[in-house]
Design a protein around this nucleic acid. Structure first.
Lengths: 343, 343
DNA sequence: ATGCCTCGTGAGAGCGCTCCCAACCAGGGG
DNA sequence: CCCCTGGTTGGGAGCGCTCTCACGAGGCAT
């Protein structure tokens, strides 16, 4: 039964080769754009591919090349967070675009629970993907440790907790951004500058706070007084702002470590009857396109270019996959201040 | 060179079999939970798997089984939409959860442009996935036609445009929901009831409008007067509400076809100095957990259970994949009215 | 004319897995 | 005592592809 092509199923490379009158090897060369193929053979194979509607079998290809062409994008965050915070939508979108541009498939893994983690580990170890982009900012998250044991190329967003040796990551200059924001407030004459921080189990939150601290030169006592955790949520920002206002009535400026929290802070300020920026100046962080330009008043904010960050992560991962020596294991992207009306 | 296991690379089934002292076939049987394996062989293989840290090679498995264990989730929407509208975050999250529960991998495809469409087609045709969940509500979208030519099991969210023959889909009872909302307004004594619709190139928007029309029994003239397109965006909802208010000053109720638009409509009503619900009663649609309970006043809304819809889509797709006869090609999920304070 | 290199090509060996088929080893009935 | 049955096992083919290797044909220098 050496039937060359059973009409029912998808055509194989064998069928293409037969139709083009060349060997399977030559057909494969054409498909993989090998240089050493005669123009005639190339034309014949191309025509056969088109005529047959041939599509390479990815599983067969992956089996021999040991490459799947897919990349996992892993978010390790509590479930509500990932889906309230518009920042994540932005990250997912950026990842989708960057990976599509690189012709890599994006496999999305959302890790909320220990079971999810076990599932993700199994998946990542299973050879389904060539590498992974990991978003796991929280202290105590087991994902980085798990990923490390996997011998899978991984690039992190921001600094994960724990040992950084040998990790590849793309971070933003969070501390520099905090300095930028705070110095802007100082140079516009503000004297009593508070800050609403993110959860301090995330490096980004810690670093932004450090920037504020460095720029204000606050004493330990002042820092304790002028700092309030807003948990990177809108409600948290509102509550933190209200608390700050109560504790420090003469506050005339605040650096809020995310735009989402800043939106909440603006609500709190409005409720308290403070005018922005006349009574209290506000600087946010992220320059989120869906938030910063649309608050009342529009928010002065530290821009972190999320799309760019993800693009760098993809670039770094692709380099890793190609086995190229990587320029910098840890990339730190700059942040800039975008001035609007709130400060 | 018949070296059984080269220590550098991942262990293969061959290695497991050797270590367990059985044949590759028996080892395979254990892994695939075949019944006809002796307890001893089973134990030996299980132990070997654990000892070696064996992970099946998915590519090899996919090559022979012709199954990848992955499902594509395709969103065909203009880029801004997918990422402003919290509804999409909700959909993605639901899909991630349902597919994870089904032990299927989720490959996310975002289609914004013709190039994206071509890429998606190539991907879907390439045998990377066993099936697809498609969200392509807009009239004129080429995706459903493309998908149809692919001989890939597909389940749609809502009714796509074009011929429905042979399509599998899970929809909500949008018209019924529109009736529910409007009758609630009527029964609470409202007489002049307008509606803010979604873009009428989506069936869901058309159906909700039809529900309003059926319940009000509006004449063509009245329908034209009392209807305004809000485009399923917050700003659109605000503008539509403002337009309606201007055109029909004695309006005392409005059915807004999405919560996001309803939030905008509430802004417009506030701007116009109308009290809700005293002057104008408002009913939304979606009962989105991030919006409806948090507006001022909290929104009475028609609940459509998105998580449930996606779960049904996954169930239907899995059935399709197993080759089981499918109960209903077109499932229509009920909607219920959730009363809060806005109507 | 002879050697050598380059170029295009085909044969064939796998990649790691599943699954068909035949072989095997009991034990029980004829 | 032999055959048959039923459960368990291993051999081996084959999924569709890539890639190494060897080979023939031509071009150039010797």
């Amino acid at each position: 039964m050496s039937v060359p092509s059973h009409s029912g199923s998808r055509p194989t490379l064998e069928d293409v080769a037969a139709k083009a009158g060349v060997s399977r090897a030559t057909a494969s060369r054409v498909l993989n754009a090998s240089p050493r193929v005669s123009p005639e053979a190339h034309a014949a194979v191309t025509a056969a591919v088109r005529a047959l509607g041939y599509q390479p079998n990815q599983a067969a290809r992956a089996l021999v090349t040991r490459r799947t062409g897919a990349v996992a994008v892993v978010f390790s965050e509590p479930e509500p967070k990932i889906f309230d915070d518009p920042h994540f939508a932005w990250l997912i979108r950026s990842a989708a675009r960057s990976l599509a541009d690189a012709d890599a498939q994006m496999v999305l893994l959302l890790v909320h629970s220990p079971e999810d983690l076990a599932r993700a580990e199994r998946f990542l170890a299973g050879g389904h993907v060539d590498g992974a982009l990991v978003f796991a900012p929280h202290k105590g998250d087991r994902l980085p440790a798990v990923a490390r044991g996997l011998s899978l190329p991984v690039v992190y967003a921001g600094r994960p907790w724990g040992a950084l040796r040998g990790l590849h990551l793309v971070d933003h200059d969070n501390e520099g951004g905090g300095v930028l924001a705070t110095e802007h407030l100082i140079s516009s004459g503000r004297r009593r500058i508070g800050t609403v921080t993110g959860p301090l189990d995330e490096h980004s939150a810690v670093d932004r706070l450090a920037g504020w601290r460095a720029a204000t030169g606050a004493s330990d006592d002042d820092a304790a007084l002028l700092t309030e955790d807003g948990g990177f949520t809108r409600d948290g920002g509102r509550r933190a702002m209200a608390a700050l206002l109560e504790r420090v009535p003469d506050l005339d400026a605040v650096f809020v470590a995310s735009d989402l929290m800043a939106a909440g802070a603006l609500d709190a300020l409005r409720d308290a009857g403070r005018r922005v920026p006349q009574d209290v100046a506000v600087v946010g962080f992220d320059d989120h396109p869906m938030i910063a330009p649309h608050t009342a008043p529009p928010l002065t904010s530290v821009r972190q270019d999320t799309g760019n960050q993800v693009k760098h992560m993809v670039t770094q991962l692709l380099r890793l996959l190609r086995g190229e020596p990587i320029r910098a294991r840890r990339e730190v992207l700059p942040t800039v201040l975008v001035r609007r009306d709130s400060a």
